[in-house]
Design a protein around this nucleic acid. Sequence first.
DNA 1: CGAATTTTCGGAAACGTTTCCGAAGAAAAC
DNA 2: GTTTTCTTCGGAAACGTTTCCGAAAATTCG
Lengths: 337, 337
Amino acid sequence: MGVTIKDIAKLAGVSVSTVSRAMNDTFDVGADTRKRIMQLVEEQGYRPNNMARGLVTQKLYTIGLIVPDISNPFFSEIAVGVEKRARALGYSVIFCNSDNDPEIERESIAMLRGKMVDGLIASLSRESFAELANIEAAGFPLVQLDRSIESTKTASVLVDNQTSGYIATKHLLELGHRRLIHFSGNHATQSAHDRKKGFEKAVREYGLSDNEFAIFEGNFTVESGIRLFGQLLKIDNRPTAIFAASDLQAVGAIAAAFDAGVAIPEEISIIGHDDVPIASLVRPRLTTMAQPKYKLGEIAVNLLVRRLIDGSAQPPENHVLQTELVVRQSTTVPRTY
Amino acid sequence: MGVTIKDIAKLAGVSVSTVSRAMNDTFDVGADTRKRIMQLVEEQGYRPNNMARGLVTQKLYTIGLIVPDISNPFFSEIAVGVEKRARALGYSVIFCNSDNDPEIERESIAMLRGKMVDGLIASLSRESFAELANIEAAGFPLVQLDRSIESTKTASVLVDNQTSGYIATKHLLELGHRRLIHFSGNHATQSAHDRKKGFEKAVREYGLSDNEFAIFEGNFTVESGIRLFGQLLKIDNRPTAIFAASDLQAVGAIAAAFDAGVAIPEEISIIGHDDVPIASLVRPRLTTMAQPKYKLGEIAVNLLVRRLIDGSAQPPENHVLQTELVVRQSTTVPRTY
DNA sequence: CGAATTTTCGGAAACGTTTCCGAAGAAAAC
DNA sequence: GTTTTCTTCGGAAACGTTTCCGAAAATTCG
């Protein structure tokens, strides 16, 4: 359709290869011819066809990004981190929503590979381990995002969810709470699993007995928070504090509390996880564990392009970032009766 | 790297073209040879290289998506709409954040075209009209998203922002409010412009005098809502109702109101725009104009692939969707003193 | 059974690049 | 002035497909 390298070559009266070299190499072409060529390029608005180029160089300067749901504020912030950093390095990104569905994940991976993306950044469900083994075996560059897998063969960037859960819970315990509940996240994810582990560890460490804490299984959504809070209202010996696996969940719980007329944090303290934008908007402002979301995305692409450039010379790095407790208004000391 | 069509051809003892036909056409190849080939394909895990294919067919089955900020819940919902619909139709999508920066927009468009995406869905700033003319002239398939441009040569899907602003304002007026303020959106966007128009129209229609309404210029962010509300507190003859150009802005205003101790909606009614998820989470629940976000994305890709298939046989369609007033808790009748 | 038609397939060009190799000419060395 | 070395360039192969064209084989028809 557009203007091609042949057109430029013809116009400049040189061969195709000379034009190519003029555009890529810095040597091996005369100064005046280069100038002439570049001028033509400018005039004609020539842009090399990356597909043709990719065919021979095996590099498309495109990376794939697979996340469960890009409308989830947690992932959308990661996505902008990925996109911005990628663009700065000359890459562009194809994204796919997986809905945490292993079937869609598999499909997306296959599609992306067929499209010859240079590498993949993915936040996969635990069911997709087999698929990951394939990717590894084929030597396809991959960095795991947010969700760790056991294999040490693949690069990853993730947060230390276990100590994050531990610190969140400890915050509650140190305030004096002794009846705790954890709203868990999607059990298919490693991070939900780890946060729960952290909760349990803290609770054990403080010597709480089995009837002093409980775990409500849920997922990361607002609806889950609403539902779980409703459930909580029905039990006797109501807890004085909640550790929600996500801010969305926590915000849902706060809304439900408001509607049920239970005062936050006076009657029940709530701590969330992630520090998404809503967290500081909701009243009371949500105490939460802040994830370095933007940074997660950034580091992921750093790791990936390093791998793309070095090949597999270096062993894969596994970055684990720490979260940060940000205390706002939704947690306080328990009421003394 | 992987297994190529030649390998399959060799294994099957047929020519390359036969393998190609076996995979694409439904005729022109014997039933038994086809079966043999397909079996090999399965065994060897062969997937055609889309880049090579795209080179000859000029179709990559990839579309570009340019939005100002994918972490904005409005756009992220649109994004899942386009991604899901695109995937259903066999396309994948490359996305770019433009930050409403014409420079980045230009860059992204050039990059996307070099990558030979089949078409483009974009939500561009008004400054990029010149660029659009180029795209049109080059016959590059484009559908304008959410933001209209004057040209009728390009397909578009957008909401009727003017009547949306009109209806929102009318809602306030019908409740009895007579001192109104509009928090405007990013002036670089057409939609902000149109909503403001709608506000003005309604306000004139109800015969408000110049000192009974005002417009505070801002943008679509939470911070803008907070800042503008602070500004509002300083004026005498405080308005009794606000029409905010976006929910984010409205939510910011509600938070600021909460902090300043002004009761919503008793002292000031607020209506937002978009109906993003936060709107129903915040207390009081936000009255707002619901945009069919997911649908916007869906229709955009429908329009685009229709164009991709038909070529420019059909004239470009311009879909304009209507918003819907959803009344929640943040608006009520004005207090009578 | 021969001719006409249909089915099934292979060869080759093409898509737009990059890159290897070698050649021609200019500059440097002797 | 001849040989050697650089510099600058062109030719051609290659990347992995699709698709056009034509040929061989198989089928149908009279």
